[in-house]
């Protein structure tokens, strides 16, 4: 377990063949795993917000649109092929019931909608998702298989 490579907030990492990736405590943030089963290439992306609105390209992984596109670019350099990717998604919860005028109200839902939209526009399908609700999730993915484990408080571990 302690060999997991940790993916921070607004971050992406990938591994090939062996090892695993983990990102902790996704609340309204979203974790997206990409797995190419042929070459056992696996990436895990942790985004914070939906559209980048061209804010800056310095922190591409902070946003769903720029984060997904950059991840796809990096993976293709590693020999990954979009046609083979299995994508799994977790997070997008609402941690607090904030007033509707708060800039972060519904951010989890907006994050997920944006992730769906961008993946679709890239011709990718989400094979499994554990999203929404009011719970935080830790997401771990195995490089060799692309199998994802979801840890939460109060619920049994979910394998997807």
């Amino acid at each position: 377990m302690n060999r997991d490579l940790c993916v921070g907030i607004a971050d992406m990492k990938f591994v090939k063949e062996t090892g695993s990736l983990i990102t902790y405590a996704l609340g309204s943030c979203i974790g997206v795993s990409f797995h190419d089963p042929l070459i056992k290439l696996t990436a895990l992306l942790h985004i914070l917000l939906p559209e980048s609105n061209q804010v800056s390209n310095e922190h591409v992984y902070k946003f769903a649109d720029s984060g997904i596109r950059e991840t796809l670019r990096i993976l293709s350099l590693q020999g990954g092929a979009k046609s083979r990717y299995v994508c799994k998604v977790a997070g997008g919860a609402q941690m607090f019931q904030l007033p509707g005028n708060s800039p972060v109200a519904n951010i989890g839902k907006r994050n997920f909608e944006c992730v769906q939209k961008i993946l679709q526009s890239e011709g990718l399908r989400i094979s499994n998702a554990q999203v929404g609700g009011t719970i935080a999730r830790t997401m771990r993915v195995e490089a060799a298989t692309g199998v994802v484990q979801i840890r939460t408080h109060g619920l049994a571990e979910i394998i997807m």
Binding site: G27, S28, F96, P99, V104, A136
Partner: peptide
Amino acid sequence: TPPAISRDMLGAILSVPMTMLGYETD
């Protein structure tokens, strides 16, 4: 605003102010 309450993972809770700030800063 009136307070909202949550009991869950520390990291997920701390990410809430980060989402508020995220468009301006890291």
